[in-house]
Design a protein around this nucleic acid. Sequence first.
DNA 1: CTGTTAGCGCATTCAG
DNA 2: CTGAATGCGCTAACAG
Lengths: 440, 440
Amino acid sequence: MFAYADFVGQVAREMAGELYGTMPGETNGEYHDALRPAKNGSAHAPTVPATLTPHTTSRETGSGGTQRGKSMASIQSIARYTGLSPATVSRYLNGHPYVSKEAQYAIELAIRELDYRPNASARSLRSGKTSRVAIVVFDASHPFCSGLIGGAGKAALQHGYDLLVQQAGAPGWQPERSVELAATRAVDGIIMASGSGLSRRHERELAALPVVTCDLDPSQSKLPGVYIDHYRSVLDGLEHLRERGARRIACVYVSGDQLASSSTRRQEAYRAFAGQYPSIEVIPVETENDLIEDGYTLLERLMQLPEPPDAVFTGSDDLAAGCLLAAQARGISVPEELRILGFDDGPVAEVLGISTIRQPVGRLGARAFQELYACISRGHTHESTDASTRSGRGTTGSARGSTAGSTLSSRGNAAAAGGGTAGSGSRIRVRYHLIARATT
Amino acid sequence: MFAYADFVGQVAREMAGELYGTMPGETNGEYHDALRPAKNGSAHAPTVPATLTPHTTSRETGSGGTQRGKSMASIQSIARYTGLSPATVSRYLNGHPYVSKEAQYAIELAIRELDYRPNASARSLRSGKTSRVAIVVFDASHPFCSGLIGGAGKAALQHGYDLLVQQAGAPGWQPERSVELAATRAVDGIIMASGSGLSRRHERELAALPVVTCDLDPSQSKLPGVYIDHYRSVLDGLEHLRERGARRIACVYVSGDQLASSSTRRQEAYRAFAGQYPSIEVIPVETENDLIEDGYTLLERLMQLPEPPDAVFTGSDDLAAGCLLAAQARGISVPEELRILGFDDGPVAEVLGISTIRQPVGRLGARAFQELYACISRGHTHESTDASTRSGRGTTGSARGSTAGSTLSSRGNAAAAGGGTAGSGSRIRVRYHLIARATT
DNA sequence: CTGTTAGCGCATTCAG
DNA sequence: CTGAATGCGCTAACAG
């Protein structure tokens, strides 16, 4: 098969955050700072002995401001250059009417000549907006998170926004950082896609800011959020297994809910399912992480049980893959003896032929941004216009064929209207797909 | 097997950027734009008849500034609150000495009371720095890119920096956006990890800014950059195949080099290898994309050839996976009849047991940031102190056992000293690993 | 159509 | 130890 031990080692190391450090034994020649050329300023480097103050061209360099020598052209510069006033230039820049043709030409020329660029900070300071939002995920390199980032980023772009990424799982990160980001107006709003380390206090602080949670358990906080209905997707998945004859189903949940996913909701679904089908045994199983290796050991643990399960609801493709590999290694036939269901429909599930539940991750991220954008445009922070009429529009079971619809719910500022017909309400629905594959 | 057609459809759709849009048929209650408050400007959109100027609440809301009602506490506010001067407060905030105990307490209280937060834009405006850098990738949700983002983000965090992400592959993105980001001082620097659409002009503009390329072909631009030595890794990979008896090797390259990877370097390596071993036939193969589906069709194409290859150097795990699946579908025995080598060592290669070449993607991103950081700290932009003495420190072949070392090179501002011993030079080395697995 | 004035929030002189 | 003054770059009110 494959070098499993080695693999485990690698993953463990990478997850431990060592992946970007300097490995011992690698020839690591850092830069010499010595031969730094003095390209600074208008040919007078500040590195001068300092006994004689280089006399900074008297004024102009003034007190604070841009210390990068080039002394970036300002709106003033081009005002002087053209003989116009800063106001006129500003007007031109912002596309205001009432700027004479001559002025326009002159300004355009000056801009090109002086290589002028408006200063973003100054603009933000004046306008109070940054055209920038942040998304907080646990680990940007995790497929789920990166999907979120991708989707949110694309949506942001369409509105002229940029996306800042913070990783709650990175060494040194603290919840403070995210709160401050918005509080200090470094961004216009935040998409919280990681519940990691979110204390009550932080949440309270966040509530005062434009924030939207993303795939966080909605019952955990009062913040508006976009999320997939894990409860129903789990029920559908279990139903899928049941229909195919499973009677002892191992139901996995991740202990540390570091990653953005509502494991509590899942567990509720497990319980609900167990209640609904007393004849089926639901075996809750805990795992610390959801990587392939974890799945591997997980299955070995399961097989130690006096009465091993005949199905595993893993809640993750990687776990499922690990389970499958372990099963194959043990000579357990899948799916005859053991059914395995994944989650997310990543490449791994694809190539291994694992049945799984596909989530519209990219769209989830995009919706999150859109909600946030609405929030921001409205000038609100979150304003509890809470009327979550959790509509239970049928369709709960019946994983008929290979796909079943579910909802992606959005609980936002606008009043939530439960109804079934389209339009008017803050609920947005997309479909997830339960994909049945031959292997598992 | 698995529902391949369906899969292909999905991937195709997602790559087309539709992944975050609204699917037809889903109940999608978009927001009504009707109730959007007229928060534009100070309430007079330029589209207005302009006869009467709406006259905004006289002072306090004044001219520009924060339009969010709460009227954020400023340093002034707490100066007034405490009876101190703004200067003292500022001193306190920046940890200056010479602030009396009493003042401190008073200020701390006021801060808590007024819920004060320093304004990031104002700070940036003054200081000229943002503590923020941008990374430009083609698609954040691609494993390679997300690895870069993850690594860069973590490294950034350690220096108190935040990371902004732009996706060059997103609909609507233009190279302008990236340039402007740095030019307008919205960020302190840029990590360019996507060569997509980079014209000469843009590159020239970038050259004047703190920028570091990441995994872009170093021969393509004069910008400083961090990159993996694809040339040598390819040679090692081919050597690996040769040692195992391959004599007709299909060498894949991606036509559009949209993703951050130097396909030209690879092709050079292909040629070099072909020159070195005249008895081995190197068959260059082009593919538009590097997804599993592409690998699948790729192999089918290869098998149409009069003389099919006995090995494939795919340059991508996904491609390799596709090849493997296609081969299995055709009843071709792997590795006996056909050897397949992947690249990156992602989960897919892992579970399928595909031999592959692991790249330290996270570390690559991290190094890129570190280079950029050095750049920024030094106050430089890039200054071509170019002396790339490409050292060829042995170790080229000999994929002995299962791993072989290679270099991750960094070409920066400081002069590059080729030498073998540690230190002194701009070269940074880490190891990639060629991982041999049973299946392929 | 244009210039003058003023101030966004902060940090840094320079005098006390 | 502290306060007054100044300006970072930009834009929105006013007058012209």
